[in-house]
């Protein structure tokens, strides 16, 4: 492997890492601002202009807090829990195409950390591992509220993963590939998947809310019943890791929704821009387009959080198992019939 390739990929990986961290940081600020807006308040406005330095102040506060350990025989697992949550939240960004390509220093640079031909499966693999962070941390806290939160989180995430995977199958039957780069490239122009698979998009969106433990599915940490859920016993930066991981997950799932259903970096007239203005300008605009789309979905997460109240636990399970899974199976069957309509018509003798 040539060294320039390694350098190029390292730069992309570091940039994606920095972007994820920055977005997770400013999501906490945006969340407070959106909450304030929806509740007719001002929100944070002391640190910096419009409270823009608030995340830094929060981070400093979390770092300087006392490191508290509950009375637990599993100190190691107690520390490992937030670590797993954070690292799985950061690993998912590896397969996301942030743009098509740039021409720099006489090289074509693809704006993706790695393009494996099973990109989407990799995403599901990492997401399913993410549950361990919450489960191990909640169990090692040696506190019944933490354990309840952890058990809730695990059952919720496992249930919604099924509907999420099934909703993806209908999309994959159309795209015929698991590589996120190809899926994004297929949606050039306004050929977005959401127009062909609206039901699949809806199911995926709902499941993404459940996977990231956001309201209305935030039962693992519902304050009124479980104090703080799985992170009740956590303090200082270990709790910061859990909170950060949630925002990082939110950012990644917003990006994935934009890439899978809303054309990713594509915008109307991108081909024209490539032909007439230049590859670099066109693709930087493409990255901006992806950024706008994912910002909208992050805003959507917050909008829903301050609009819809929390579900009851049995409602959550009923929605997952009795509504979303059958719906996504019907969606698969309908998609199959539509794809094979010519063959079926020929078979029936039309």
């Amino acid at each position: 492997m040539e060294s320039t390739f390694i350098i190029e990929k390292s730069v992309v990986i570091v940039a994606v890492f920095a972007l994820t961290m920055l977005m997770a940081m400013y999501s906490t600020w945006a969340e407070r601002k959106v909450a304030a807006f929806l509740q007719d308040r001002v929100g944070p406005n002391r640190a910096g202009w419009g409270g823009l330095l608030q995340p830094l102040a929060d981070g400093l506060k979390l770092f300087s807090k006392e490191e508290f350990f509950p009375n637990t025989p599993n100190k190691f697992l107690f520390i490992v829990g937030p670590g797993i949550a954070m690292s799985t939240a950061l690993m998912t960004s590896a397969v996301i195409p942030w743009g098509d390509r740039l021409h720099l220093f006489g090289r074509e640079i693809y704006l993706q950390a790695t393009d494996i031909n099973i990109g989407l499966l990799y995403f599901f693999g990492v997401v399913s591992v993410g549950v361990y962070g919450i489960m191990i941390g909640g169990w090692a806290s040696n506190n019944k509220f933490s354990l309840m939160g952890a058990v809730r989180a695990a059952s919720q995430m496992v249930s919604y993963e099924i509907a999420m995977g099934l909703s993806m199958i209908a999309l994959l039957m159309m795209t015929g590939t698991l590589s996120l780069k190809e899926i994004a490239a297929q949606q050039a122009g306004l050929n977005w998947n959401v127009f062909y698979q609206p039901l699949s998009f809806l199911i995926f969106l709902i499941c993404a809310f459940a996977e990231t433990n956001r309201t209305p599915f935030d039962l693992p940490e519902c304050e009124s019943e479980l104090i703080g859920g799985y992170h009740t016993e956590y303090s200082s930066m270990k709790m910061g890791f859990y909170l950060f991981a949630e925002y990082a997950n939110m950012f990644i799932s917003a990006t994935l929704i934009s890439v899978l259903f809303f054309g990713g970096y594509n915008y109307p007239g991108m081909q024209w821009m490539v032909d007439n203005v230049g590859v670099n300008t066109a693709n930087i605009l493409g990255m901006l387009a992806l950024f706008v789309k994912l910002c909208f979905f992050i805003f959507f997460y917050m909008w829903v959080r301050w609009t819809i109240p929390r579900f009851r636990y049995d409602q959550l399970m009923n929605l997952g198992w009795k509504i979303l899974i059958p719906l996504s199976i019907i969606n698969i069957v309908v998609t199959g019939i539509v794809i094979l309509r010519a063959d079926i018509a020929a078979f029936l003798g039309f």
Partner: peptide, 25 residues
Amino acid sequence: QFLAVVHIIVYSGAIMILFLFTIML
């Protein structure tokens, strides 16, 4: 790669989580 990722999804991501879940409960 396919086998590896499916192995992670099925065994680590689903079966072992349910195992851990039951043991904790």
